[in-house]
Design a protein around this nucleic acid. Structure first.
Ligand code: ZN
Ligand code: ZN
Ligand code: ZN
Ligand code: ZN
Lengths: 152, 152
DNA sequence: CTTGTAATTGAAAACATATTTCATTTACAG
DNA sequence: CTGTAAATGAAATATGTTTTCAATTACAAG
């Protein structure tokens, strides 16, 4: 079981951040979503239940969550600012549906060998890598797909 | 030997595009650069030798080059709009220096097996993937690095 | 339960980046 | 050459993000 909004509240406090209604609302909106969300769509979702919340607050909350290492970024698709709660705590990557934005995690990263080889070959000191798979989820392969993003 | 601006001129014509001074200037600016460049930095480079050129033209040229499949996009670093002439014509990926932006290509993509496995495991029909390594190039590992981007 | 205070908020402005519009210029086929 | 469709640049517009600042609020301490 991953991080619940409740546990995250604890983490926030540990780091000197306060738990506010607004932050709670943002967490609720993204914590158990299967798709990646843009800042704007997070704002939309949050504002539906909390009219009056500012888009700035969404941006600020995302910044904090990123600072705490709780967010993953999805590049595939739109504008390279897809956000997602980090579900596995270990090193992992994502499989992303180009239809509905649904994201599945996987932890078996096979890049170690290649990374070493490239490091030797190029003289680069490699520190990180970005890996994402893109495709169509089972639902979005169906004749008349009902993308999660379009529901509700 | 990769695509020279000259060969690209041919490709443009083949597709009904005209070869203009401005497009030529943009090509000259990015065709033999080792680093990835943002639209703004391409504009800067081009405008240095061709004052009067419009930033719009740079954007439009980038769009065309992307349409011809001649551009690679680099996500790592900045704003996810790093552009680069596609050097190998085969499937390839990039090693990017976080210091100077220098990019090295590699063609040995080891993701086939993993892709099949993930496809079976998730039910996704996978179509594509994004892979980038990030690190420090030999120059940028030196005590007092002289990043290519900062030169000239 | 107060109270004090530093953190947080939202509106508005500022900033950065990208795209559209349109009159003028230009490449190039014929 | 010439005619014409393509391309250009200035300006306007659109989109996305950050900064500023006065008002509000969480929460530690009493
Ligand atoms: Zn889907
Ligand atoms: Zn990995
Ligand atoms: Zn470097
Ligand atoms: Zn590959």
């Amino acid at each position: 079981m991953g991080l619940t909004p409740y546990k995250i509240a604890g983490l926030l406090k540990q780091r000197g951040y306060r738990m506010t209604l607004q932050r709670r609302a943002v967490l609720d909106a993204i914590a158990r979503t299967e798709e990646y969300l843009s800042p704007a769509s997070i704002y939309e979702k949050v504002a539906r239940k909390n009219p009056g919340i500012g888009l700035v607050t969404v941006y600020r909350t995302l910044e904090i969550l990123a600072d705490l290492g709780l967010l993953c970024k999805v590049h595939t698709g739109g504008n390279c600012r897809g956000y997602l709660m980090s579900r596995p705590s270990e090193h992992h990557h994502h499989v992303v549906c180009s239809g509905c934005g649904r994201v599945v995690d996987f932890t078996d990263c096979v890049l170690d060998e290649l990374e070493k080889k490239l490091s030797r070959g190029t003289g680069f000191k490699l520190e990180n890598h970005l890996l994402e798979f893109v495709g169509r989820c089972p639902d979005c392969q169906k004749p008349s797909p009902v993308p999660v993003a379009a529901q509700q």
